[in-house]
Amino acid sequence: MKHTSPSPAKRLAVVLLVSIALVLLYQLSFLVRIVWFNFYNPNSSAVMRQTLSELRKDDPNVQLRFEWVDYDQISPHIKRAVISSEDANFLDHTGVEWQAIRQAWEYNKKQAAQGSERRRGGSTLTQQLAKNLFLSTSRSYTRKGQELILSYMIEYVMPKQRILELYLNMAQWGQVDFGVQAAAQRYFKTDAKQLNASQAARLAAMLPNPVFYDRNGNTPYLQRRTNTIMQRMRQVRIP
């Protein structure tokens, strides 16, 4: 019996089907982890592991500072401050704000050209959580695309309160400090529950560039940004 090999079109179709199946399985693996983290607290994040790996190239003994705190053990001031600073429409959007992304890109490009330290985050809190928890700090279109997909998944699975709780515990607030509890102890010698309005505003102001402010302290811009956040906090709703 004579056997004929598949035509190029059929081979291409098989390759495409296999590729699509692999992509769907890859995305499904993220969805499963998102469902898991809706109920169970993570012990670390992708950005924490990346940061630790980079720091240990110079100091093999370095350790990150991180301590999980539940939502009701976190000061309402820092919740309001972070929403005010990073994502004013947090309670209303579904994960991504496209206009904010475009505006932030234009603003940061202009500031960089002027040699300014100022940066504006166009990502929502949900996008930042997706990056911190699952991805990395690398800048690429592929990473950004995955971040957007994850953001919609997170918003579909998790309530806003859980998203904010995870964000506050996973955010980087210094070279080795992760989470609001470590930040409160590092900068103010207190617990996350005891943060007052001015302390919370300063921590929120650090978020776009935490390592820079960890090294350079309370710069004039950081002071001005802190004051601006304090003025806005009163109108912020929290989940």
Rank of each mutant, 00 (worst) to 15 (best):
D191Q: 14
S44K: 14
W98V: 15
A130G: 08
R49P: 00
F39R: 15
E165H: 01
Q185M: 14
G145F: 03
L125H: 02
R162K: 15
H3R: 14
S138P: 00
Q181Y: 12
M1T: 11
D72I: 03
D72C: 03
S75M: 08
S19H: 01
R120E: 09
S140K: 07
R234F: 04
A183Y: 02
K110Y: 10
T226I: 05
M48W: 06
P208L: 06
Y26S: 13
E165R: 01
N108T: 06
T51A: 13
T94I: 05
K10I: 11
D177Y: 11
E155W: 06
T94K: 13
M170F: 06
K144Q: 10
L129K: 04
R139T: 11
L91V: 03
Q199P: 08
F66P: 06
R33P: 02
G122W: 07
S44I: 10
Y71N: 01
S29I: 09
D87L: 04
G145A: 05
T219R: 05
N43T: 12
H3W: 11
Q172P: 08
G174I: 02
E117C: 03
V15L: 15
F178G: 03
L129R: 05
Q128W: 03
S84H: 00
Q146A: 12
P208I: 02
L12W: 06
V82M: 09
Q114C: 05
L91R: 03
Y152T: 12
P42C: 07
Q161I: 05
G122I: 09
L52N: 10
Y71E: 02
P208N: 07
M48H: 06
